[in-house]
Amino acid sequence: MRRVIFNQKGGVGKSTITCNLAAISAAEGKKTLVIDMDIQGNSTHYLLGDKVPDPDATLAHFFKETLSLNPFSKGQEGLDDNIHATPFPNLYVLPSHPEMEPLQGRLESRYKIYKLREALDQLQGYERVYIDTPPILNFFSRSALIASHACLIPFDCDQFSRDALYTLLAAIAEIKADHNNGLEIEGIIANQYQGRATLPRQMVNALLSEGQPVLKTKLSPSVKVRESHSQSQPLIHYAPDHKLTKEFKALHKEIHKKQA
């Protein structure tokens, strides 16, 4: 199962949600891969800190090799050589790299938009794949949506985010129609949700009244998120008994129950 976590709005918790759901999958014994498609590399740093074992083995290297005219180059063999083990059992990451940014124009002009999906179709052994994306609909986020079976949408509970959500849903629908008819919106995740505040409740209730697929589990704001990022430890390892960790476990259970 391949999930993409995507929103065109920045700061909505894509990397946090990606890494924490993946860490829970791995802790449950599932061999799990995180793919960091964002050049900022937040998921890479969350899981590896500054300890990327081989900086030349990254997602940028994979995409550069897709542009190579040499049919015997390493990149033609797939993603395996660019994947790194994290310090956590069963959890692996395909790191981002700043060199991805200047590659976009060449990748688009040579129509490499399906290369990630083709490589993932050939990748063996991973039961679950979570893909983090940049906060913009560009070549890399489109590649991720085309390569995935399901999309999770983090949602900040304010009017600006609600207005932007409709543009996002239309963009996903277009990619589904044109490139990936198996792509489904698995759910909208209410993040930084304050249940006692009026506006977040109104926003969620408005989406539900429209029939939008808002997930039952909501994620609370917590300083533990920043702490876990700074320590490069997902919450299940950094603060296993914390309220937010339990919410992530409940969210993980909810999406996999929907899948079953």
Rank of each mutant, 00 (worst) to 15 (best):
H237P: 00
I5V: 15
K51P: 01
A173C: 05
E184I: 03
V34H: 03
A250K: 09
G125K: 07
K218T: 15
P89S: 10
K9P: 04
D36L: 08
E99M: 10
N191G: 06
N138H: 01
T133H: 11
L79V: 11
E247I: 03
F248K: 01
I255S: 06
Q231T: 13
T217F: 08
Q194G: 12
F139E: 01
K216T: 13
S141D: 05
R226F: 02
T18D: 07
F88N: 00
R162Y: 04
L145M: 13
L183N: 04
F88E: 07
R226D: 13
L137G: 03
T198Y: 04
I153K: 12
F88H: 02
A260S: 10
E99Q: 12
R201H: 04
V204N: 01
N90R: 10
M37N: 09
R110L: 15
Y238L: 10
F155S: 08
S109D: 11
C157K: 05
L207Y: 03
Y238T: 04
N82H: 11
T32S: 10
T18A: 09
Q259C: 05
H242G: 13
D50A: 13
N90P: 07
Q104R: 15
I131V: 12
A164Y: 02
H256D: 15
Q104S: 15
H45T: 12
D38I: 10
L33S: 06
L208S: 00
I5Y: 08
K14I: 04
L244R: 07
I113K: 08
V214K: 10
D36E: 09
K115W: 02
K258R: 15
L48R: 00
P135K: 04
F140P: 06
G13W: 03
Q212C: 12
S141M: 02
M100S: 02
H252P: 00
P98C: 07
G41K: 05
Y166C: 00
D178H: 00
M100H: 02
V34G: 01
N42L: 10
P55Q: 02
H97E: 05
L199V: 15
N70D: 15
S73G: 11
G75K: 09
L215R: 03
D50K: 15
T245S: 12
K243C: 01
S68I: 05
K216F: 08
K246R: 14
D81H: 02
L251S: 08
D36F: 11
M1G: 11
V12A: 06
T245L: 06
I35E: 09
Y130E: 04
A119D: 05
A190F: 00
L165V: 07
D241S: 14
T86P: 04
L94N: 09
